[in-house]
């Protein structure tokens, strides 16, 4: 099935080629002809246009890529619906997991896919004119803590802090993480924090903007705010080096 190959060799051995050799399919680079062998002639364009193609978008014309994501009024939905759904997600994940650590990793994975997609959506909506690529760690963190958080969860996160001990560690703190609002953790599950899902969202968004990081969620209750959660963001060491090379 040589016709299916992307690069069609014009002859079995290149050294035997001469100017008179035209590939059977009408395509292929003939070194003795040079760039000329790639010119599109009426015959070759005919072959190109009549090739069988496979449509990758079955609903094409009315596919999701044709819809405008920009001018749409943001729809709202009942918070309980998400809570019910999330509860079932945790339930399912829990049944498949081998332990608390594993459960958190899986929840993180679920959030990761959400984060990647949400970032794209927000950036598309910002539009070409007003949006810019964040290239500094502190800027991308401000974006996540502010705009990004507000679009997803309806409010900005509470605090943004930098670790004193490690140069690549930052913390975003949310007093009432949306998804844990209705979750109470049994005593024997110790330090499980279902906000691992939200940590995954942050990680997905950071990774997609080329700030590779590990994000974990830790409960840090203080007086009056029992659900307070710290999202610990640990950037790749390489990023700190990149930053110091670029801006110092």
């Amino acid at each position: 099935m040589s016709n299916d190959n992307i690069i069609l060799p014009s002859a079995a051995s290149l050294s035997t080629l001469s100017i008179a050799d035209n590939p059977k399919s009408g395509f292929g680079y003939n070194p003795s002809l040079g760039p000329l062998s790639n010119t599109i002639t009426p015959e070759s364009s005919n072959i190109l246009l009549n090739r069988k193609t496979l449509s990758l978008t079955p609903t094409s014309g009315n596919s999701i890529y044709d819809k405008n994501v920009n001018n749409k009024k943001i729809n709202e939905i009942n918070l309980s619906s998400l809570s019910f759904l999330f509860c079932e997600a945790v339930n399912w994940t829990h049944r498949n997991s081998k332990g608390i650590q594993d459960l958190e990793t899986r929840l993180n994975g679920l959030g990761y896919q959400v984060g990647q997609r949400f970032l794209e959506l927000i950036k598309l909506r910002e539009g070409v004119k007003s949006s810019k690529r964040e290239i500094k760690i502190i800027d991308i963190l401000r974006f996540i803590h502010g705009t990004f958080w507000k679009s997803i969860f309806g409010k900005t996160a509470n605090e943004l802090e930098k670790s004193q001990d490690a140069s690549n560690e930052y913390m975003i703190i949310d007093n009432v993480p949306l998804v844990s609002k209705f979750i109470s953790i049994p005593k024997d599950y110790g330090n499980l924090n279902c906000s691992a899902f939200m940590a995954g969202i942050i990680e997905g968004a950071l990774d997609s903007s080329s700030f590779h990081a590990n994000v974990t969620a830790h409960s840090a209750p203080i007086d009056g705010v029992p659900l307070r959660t710290v999202f610990l963001i640990k950037f790749d060491e390489q990023l700190v080096i990149r930053e110091s090379l670029r801006f110092n």
Partner: peptide, 21 residues
């Protein structure tokens, strides 16, 4: 009177769950 959230978070979360399943 219900507490509301952005429906896109719900949409993407559900998508993520189905994909995982």
């Amino acid at each position: 009177n219900v507490d509301k959230i952005n429906s896109e978070l719900f949409t993407l979360t559900y998508g993520s769950i189905v994909a995982q399943l």
